[in-house]
Design a protein around this nucleic acid. Structure first.
Lengths: 351, 351
DNA sequence: CTGTTAGCGCATTCAG
DNA sequence: CTGAATGCGCTAACAG
């Protein structure tokens, strides 16, 4: 039996609009999407009907026909990080203009979340994906799956070897190298690294840059000078920084400077240094990574490494868009961007 | 290397699965969704076919039938504040369990973005919406539109009077009142407020709590003691805090304590105080709001007000879910949650 | 310029 | 227990 459409809650459909405008649905569709020829007379009637009924196209039905959702997904580790916001801005610069919506999902650092979110995006048939979580074995597997499903994606900060997948990343190695070289230049000979466990250290580009800088200066890389969380190598927080500095301070051969894996870790380390009665930078120089907005406002302000985040987002977006619209697959591109050392008072007296 | 390029293949459909399993699509659907009776024999064949073809249901087609996307949208302001993550965690606690996916969009503080994101969610027919942006006139209008479209939603931290819309918020007024009362208790008589322009102050609950605490103690609320950004009353950053403290320091009648609108602002103010040669808390006590993770790691650690963020997210989610599944509309609920003062070294010597 | 036809992938409804 | 028909809302691809 015919259900009465008296339910005001039911959104208006194209058919409703067409009926009110006295045309057939297809014509209304053409008028609304500016495709094909429609008389200005009809166009006007349709647009009036649209307004009157508060009509909005059902993107899902549209996608079902065209297999284009006009939306992409962005997978982030979390959104607390200033990093994430800037990244999204960069991505949106490109996709807003191209008429795509950007949906975001976060993993909260949980691998199951990463898998679930990626699946959800794929199940909802997004047209493309930007992945900015940290590389893990399980994560890579899921991405391989996604790739098999034919969904184009690009990664940021997590290089992955997969056919037809573009990657953009900052040169974390170089950034770390520069920061540690700076510490060496101003006279430090014993420099610690805070933010990762000795076991996991080799998987971290920031660590490798640190080690390389020491070696190039002819300094020894001491295992006991590397401290950090073992449970969750994907992150390092202010708490880890605090614990790390506390541990380093107990060493017989205590470093005079530390390079922290990121600014949060550096700030935690700085707090510990203060509590242990060390002066920063006189007794302990500290450098971080990322240049979060608060880095310039700590006491003393934090020396750190800045990476071009918005640019990375924009470039990844552009590559993804190209791949989404391209006819031919094209070779995978991999782009690396320079980081910039920013020297402040946490390493330089009077800085 | 078995590099079979399945990329050109379109994703498997239910029909593909059914064909491989030797049944009709409907039967496969029943087997996959555990609905209706299916012989274990068929069930097994189907599940094998699913695995073999990497089949995943097309949520869009499913929704087209059922009018349920099984997903909700979360709209966040884009300021890189740590509570975004916690909020999302709270919301997900509820919706993950209920089998919904959570998609996030951010506004970048731009009102057009807010409108566009809300429209995008609605156009993609999400089943519900959590809105956590700051209240604005235009934003309210868009929300009224969304509400008319029949999409249930709940707001966090932005009360709105709309039929059938639930709101949850922290009691910012009380939090501010408690923080300022604490400053008064430890002896301060001249207390500034940093974070909003005098023109906009009355729209900010945190300001009103500040003023109320002063009045209750019989202290005068001096207009010149309120400083903050005028251009963008929706936000206040570390830069605003720095500028605000600098301005207050030049007053003839300089405050001995300040209450900052949020922790970022407080940290900026603290930096300015240090640079101006004031000791914190001896010469200048500083309190913030939000208890961001870094607040415990500043020098000195920051006295601040903590709001139950995860809980707010979970409660809003629960109310939304109830509304989404309820038969009858039900009256709109409005919930307010207490905030907790956390006293640290930025107000208490030796704290 | 406009109408007709046909399906996108899935699940509800009714027959076997 | 399984199959067949039907339509969700929309739009290519053809007719007029």
């Amino acid at each position: 039996m015919k259900t009465k459409n008296t339910n005001t809650n039911r959104p208006a459909t194209l058919t409703d609009v067409a009926r009110l405008a006295g045309v057939v649905p297809m014509t209304a569709s053409r008028a609304i999407n500016d495709s094909g020829y429609v008389s200005s007379e009809v166009r006007k009637r349709v647009s009036e009907a649209v307004k009157k009924l508060h009509y909005r196209p059902n993107m899902l039905a549209r996608q079902l026909k065209s297999s284009r959702l006009n939306a992409i997904g962005i997978l982030l580790p979390d959104i607390a990080n200033p990093f994430s916001t800037e990244l999204v801005n960069g991505v949106r610069q490109v996709f807003d203009e191209a008429g795509y919506t950007c949906f975001i999902a976060t993993t909260s650092g949980k691998l199951e979340h990463e898998k679930a979110s990626l699946q959800a995006f794929a199940d909802h048939r997004v047209d493309g994906l930007i992945v900015a979580t940290r590389g893990t074995k399980l994560g890579d597997e899921v991405l391989r799956d996604i790739s098999r499903r034919g969904i184009p994606f690009a990664t940021i900060g997590r290089p992955i070897k997969l056919r037809g997948v573009d990657c953009v990343t900052a040169n974390h190695w170089q950034g770390a190298f520069d920061a540690v070289s700076h510490l060496i230049e101003i006279g430090h000979r014993e420099i610690g690294f805070i933010g990762i466990s000795p076991e996991d250290r080799l998987s971290l580009r920031r660590y490798l840059g640190y080690a390389a800088a020491l070696e190039q200066a002819g300094l020894e890389v001491r295992p006991e000078h590397t401290v950090g969380p073992r449970e969750a190598p994907a992150f390092a927080t202010q708490e880890d920084g605090f614990a790390g500095m506390t541990a380093l301070a107990q060493l017989r051969r205590r470093p005079t400077a530390v390079f922290a894996r990121n600014d949060f870790t550096a700030i935690g380390a700085m707090r510990a240094a203060h509590m242990l009665g060390m002066r920063v930078p006189e007794d302990m120089a500290i450098a971080g990574f990322d240049n979060i907005p608060l880095a310039a406002f700590t006491t003393p302000p934090l020396t750190t490494v800045e990476q071009p985040i918005t640019a990375q987002g924009a470039i990844a977006a552009r590559m993804l868009l190209d791949r989404m619209t391209a006819e031919k697959p094209g070779a995978a591109k991999s782009i690396s961007m320079e980081c910039k050392l920013i020297v402040r008072g946490s390493t330089l007296i009077g800085g």
